[in-house]
């Protein structure tokens, strides 16, 4: 069952449409990538899901129910532009955010303690945010997003501001949360993290949804039908359009399928030597992203 279902959602600011007729389904327990260029409408969509602003028309269902304020405690949100109270201590701040999400005082204390220990930052609990480094503050920020154990986690550019070490920690935390059954909506420009983390994606461009589905399905759908082949050649001349790359003991080539079946192609290739590698080339998210944006100039 889906955790979030969006039907025909539209929102405009004055004459400017921010979202037009968006339909979206986020299944439970997946990491869902929300992609799109700057100004596509991602932030507006995220703000509507977080009930910060209202849509003009359309319906949002959270676990089958129309989204309402009682769901606030089940959603965690890490905005792209984020901050903490500089003068407040780490501990007080986390307790405050947890309580605002509806946690009881005792529960909040227990959870803050758990997370501080988990991320090995218990020693900072009495420090003010202004005395922490940016990366340290980001860790605190991440805790504040997950502290109330939401069922749906919305992360807008979660890795910005982290050094590679801390980004790795956060990435592992996200994967761990997924294993616990938490659904994560991830909005990012870093296609390599989409590739690494996301099960499903949706792409928004100029207020419209242009793509949605399982990452693997989408990749397959947009594959160029070209195979990466490595073989030790027997001397037979190969067509130049294969992009031949020779090394001392093997030849690497990229062979288009040209309407043939893979097995057929493999048979043909065997006449050029011993096959060492035979693998279909799938598009990277980076390529897909650019290609999709270019092919939808008007969204």
């Amino acid at each position: 069952m889906e955790i979030l279902k969006i039907q025909d959602l539209s929102k405009s600011f004055g004459q400017q449409p921010a979202l037009s007729h968006i339909d979206l389904v986020v299944p439970r327990g997946v990491i869902f990538g929300l992609l799109g260029p700057n100004g596509a409408g991602k932030t507006t969509l995220i703000r509507i899901i977080n009930q910060i602003i209202d849509g003009d028309s359309g319906l949002i269902l959270f676990k089958g129910e129309p989204l309402s304020s009682k769901h606030i405690s089940q959603i965690g949100y890490l905005p792209e532009e984020r901050g903490l109270y500089k003068k407040m201590k780490v501990w007080d701040q986390l307790i405050y955010f947890a309580r605002l999400k509806g946690m009881s005082a005792s529960m909040a204390k227990e959870k803050v303690k758990y997370w501080l220990e988990k991320l090995e930052i218990s020693s900072w609990r009495e420090k003010r945010i202004e005395d922490l480094s940016k990366g340290m503050a980001q860790k605190v920020q991440f805790i504040s997003t997950v502290i109330h154990e939401p069922e749906l986690l919305i992360l807008d550019e979660p890795f910005s501001g982290f050094d590679p070490m801390n980004a790795e920690i956060i990435k592992n935390e996200i994967l761990e949360l997924k294993d616990k059954g938490i659904t994560v909506v991830l909005s990012t420009h870093r296609m390599e993290s989409v590739e690494l983390l996301c099960d499903e994606i949706a792409m928004i461009h100029k207020s419209k949804k242009i793509l949605e589905g399982k990452l693997s399905d989408i990749k397959r759908k947009f594959r160029p039908h070209v195979y990466q082949v490595a073989l030790s050649p027997n001397g037979t001349q190969m067509p130049a359009e294969w992009g031949i790359h020779r090394t001392s003991d093997k030849v690497e080539i990229q062979v288009p399928l040209n309407g043939k079946r893979p097995n057929q192609l493999l048979l043909e290739l065997m006449s050029f030597g011993d096959i060492l590698e035979f693998r279909e080339i799938l598009p990277t998210m980076e390529e897909l992203f650019i290609q999709q944006v270019k092919s939808h100039p008007h969204g």
Binding site: I75, Y77, R82, G83, L84, K86, K101
Partner: peptide, 13 residues
Amino acid sequence: SSRIVEILVSSIK
């Protein structure tokens, strides 16, 4: 200006 507000308003009106 410190952008806390977006987190706050996702929890409280």
